[in-house]
Design a protein around this nucleic acid. Structure first.
Lengths: 347, 347
DNA sequence: TTCGATAATAAAAACGTTTTATTTTAGGAT
DNA sequence: ATCCTAAAATAAAACGTTTTTATTATCGAA
């Protein structure tokens, strides 16, 4: 490997001069600089990142972390959501020449020293983007206490104390439900996108419940189904709901995959959509378009981009200010599954 | 940040003793060691990775690289393929306490110094897993020339000179085609999973062509459609094929998403599957199961795992041996779309 | 006792940078 | 010529480890 010493020797100058010339951190005589740069290029010199990081205390690396065991790291997000998040993050980091470290772990439930804390302590990265934290994640507190830069992407509930970027899941759920209520439904069921311990799921559930309560509707236990990322869970939910003595007339699906499952079940049993069962969902994925499902956008690409931007902002300034909470706008894309499009056409 | 000096001072020993005790690299008196370890734990000491890396010349980091611009990094793999690959890689690296760096770039077409080369020169990682290389990627040569550990995942064509892990795309395409030939088809079309410049696409195409030629069938230009990762491209392909004066009676789809598009088109137009059009594909995704598409497994989770294992093996030994090429087994999962299942039932 | 050998510890060097402090050089003004 | 200043370059310190080399303590044998 060619080091700064090699360049210095070849150019007949000291290593500090090489450093100054290369980084532009101090004035160097034009002709000297030109000579140095030529040699650097010729010998393919690139400063060793460990050595550089040791003195600058910077790694130029940001970590994307998910508090799930590796076995279900990606399954939760399902579909292409996680890809889009990654892509948004990557594009922004790429521009500023930052690297992306990917890591996951259960939140210290198993390991003695949680992986993320270890990575922070050994200064393997400059900051961390945390994806989908559970409700009780004390680790986030541990990091922020140490003034370590943290941005939560895909959740907004801890807003008071830590930076975050997300759509407003509560608000979207609230609006989705209001949408069905406005169409005259009163028996509305809810499929949770995943276990309620996840903040996203809790938020969406709360938004649903509050809209119902506010409209004076009953929130029934048998109108709640805890689903997962698979279409099958939507299918199962529909099956369960429609087997009730008093089945719901509308469903708020927690994610598009579940909505697709509902549609599959309905088609299979000859249940009319939206006639017999109205349906709204979250995500507005390609599948929603294909299946004619009304769905609210949750633009993970945008969330990733804004999350990375916020992180770079944090890294760029010395004094930390108050936590910032970026809300990515969302809109309900109305298709045939909820009945509103039809109502409009009938008018 | 607490350093090794703090531990040494607190324990009343030299820093070398702390290092020896912590790493177990030299004998330390039991009681001294116990005292040191207690302090390390109490003060939450974790060796600084840059400092450690500087002297050991190890980063304990492996990079996963894709030679695509960030804008379409993940789209090519489509569906959840990339997720599965990542998961397989992650699980293996996790076990050995290796970190995963994610990077992408066009292969130096734009940047003066390709990003991957820069990362290698600055020793930001110990080795790289390269995903989906194009045919002419001279960068791979540049890395291997420098004896930098490289494993290609998801392609096997450069086998002679560089380590790789993949299914045998050529063989699978060959077998898929033979399967249709055996069912009596002679007019068979091929949808490429993506641009032919990608090795995977070329391999699958070659396997198809060779099977056809070997069976004495004509390989027609109008029976080739260059698709992409979207279902729509399969739809378009079917549309194009069936508009021909002499339409094919069977199609080898390059990936499941395309096969789904073909099914969508067929259903829409009332074209019988497999009666009017037989179909086989690659991937065996959840969608293939849902749509009853016969599809050959291409287990990216397994590819990721084996790729990471091979990388760790390379990093574990000093002298490099001959390049190794791991082939992940594949099998055709027969469903209704090809006609073989029906044939069996009729018997 | 003294000598050696061995075990435990300490000291010092090295890793490759950046950064701060110091020295040299050049050029103008006196 | 001499002095001063600014510019350019160098030297040296620091970053936090690991690793190699050196020193000290301990103990058994002569």
């Amino acid at each position: 490997m060619v080091t700064i010493k090699d360049i210095a020797r070849e150019a007949g100058v000291s290593i500090s001069t090489v450093s100054f010339a290369f980084n532009g951190t101090a004035p160097v005589a034009p002709e000297t600089k030109a000579r140095i740069m030529e040699i650097i290029k010729r010998l393919n010199y690139q400063p060793n990142s460990a050595a550089r990081g040791l003195v600058t205390r910077k790694t130029n690396t940001v970590c994307l972390f998910t508090p799930h065991p590796a076995t279900d790291f990606f399954s939760f997000s399902g579909n292409n959501n996680f890809n889009h998040l990654l892509q948004g993050i990557g594009e922004v980091l790429d521009q500023k020449d930052y690297n992306l470290l990917l890591s996951w772990d259960s939140f210290g439930h198993k390991a003695k020293t949680p992986k993320l804390v270890k990575l922070m302590r050994e200064r393997a990265m400059d900051g961390v983007l945390i994806c989908l934290p559970e409700h009780d994640s004390h680790i986030i507190e541990e990091l922020t206490e140490q003034n370590f830069p943290v941005v939560i992407v895909g959740s907004n509930s801890l807003t008071n104390r830590v930076n975050s970027v997300d759509v407003d899941n509560y608000e979207i759920a609230y609006k989705n439900t209001r949408h069905l209520l406005a169409l005259g439904h009163s028996r509305i069921a809810f499929i949770s996108p995943g276990p309620l311990k996840y903040l996203v799921c809790e938020d969406r559930h709360e938004g649903f419940k509050d809209a119902m309560k506010e409209a004076g509707m009953r929130v029934r236990d048998d109108y709640l189904f805890i689903g997962d990322e698979k279409e099958q869970s939507g299918y199962k939910a529909a099956e369960a709901f429609l087997a009730l003595k008093e089945p719901p007339t509308a469903v708020v699906a927690g994610r598009d995959a579940q909505a697709v499952g509902v549609v599959d079940f309905a088609r299979e049993r000859g249940i009319g959509l939206p006639g017999d069962l109205a349906l709204v969902s979250f995500e507005n994925s390609a599948a929603a378009a294909k299946y004619g499902i009304s769905s609210a956008t949750t633009d993970l690409y945008e969330i990733g981009k804004e999350g990375a931007k916020l992180m770079l902002k944090l890294l760029g300034r010395k004094k930390d200010r108050a936590p910032q909470n970026v809300v990515i706008p969302s809109e309900l894309v109305v298709r045939d599954s909820c009945g509103a499009a039809q109502a409009t056409r009938d008018r």
